[in-house]
Amino acid sequence: MLEVKHLTKIYEDGTVALRDVSFTVEDGEFLVIIGLSGSGKSTLLRCINRLIEPTEGQIIWNGVDITAADPVQLRQIRRQIGMIFQQFNLVKRSTVLTNVLAGRLGYVNPWASLLHRFPKQDVEMAMRALERVGIADQAHKRADELSGGQQQRVGIARALMQQPKMILADEPVASLDPVLAHSILGYLEQLNQEEGITVLCSLHYLDLVQRYATRVIGLRDGRIVYRGTREDIRRMTDEEFKEIYGEEAVRVSVGPREGGM
């Protein structure tokens, strides 16, 4: 269970990105965060694994206070939380395999890893992860030679290597076309349903939110302005969606891919 209590983030330049945000996520949920651009979605997700230091508030995950963790504890917490990014954030010049193996960095012997040495079972695990997302044949290519959709699958494989209990996904499909979006979210849904991995994901499109979310929170100007269950969301009309989301909201015209995974 993830508990976010009175979380506030004020950037150095005085921008208040989050104001007193509190919510709870049960294990195994697929929580979708919606909100306008600049409403604080990325800030919220990055506060959870402290890529951004919260200004105030607490984040407690399975009884452990993430906000109070020292650097060593923080790395141990981080390695159990996979993260997926809108811009994929792969190391472009490294191979796909190296990018995926990087997911093990929190587990392996640090000194060996500096020489790019990984245990044999980790390499096998990486190949299985790539197989799982359907790009095992690309393992030895440079990451920047892949298409956007393939790169995001590498991103998922990298997160899988962490054997995560939770995945944070910051607009994982915003740079992809709708068909690819369903394919990528399909993987996340499968991990969520089959392995019980909690997913926190920010999304833009109402269709995708309705299709994948088990719960939704809506942010505006760093405040939670909407909380909904799966049923609330399914009943939601475009007008209501736009009210939280603003005029930027778009409905995806392509339906979910059949047998998406």
Partner: peptide, 17 residues
């Protein structure tokens, strides 16, 4: 590009890694 740095940090890697 700060993106990959963020991504590697998020895996629990230390500074040197």
């Amino acid at each position: 590009d700060p993106g990959p740095i963020e991504a590697i940090q998020a895996t629990g890697a230390n500074r040197l890694q």
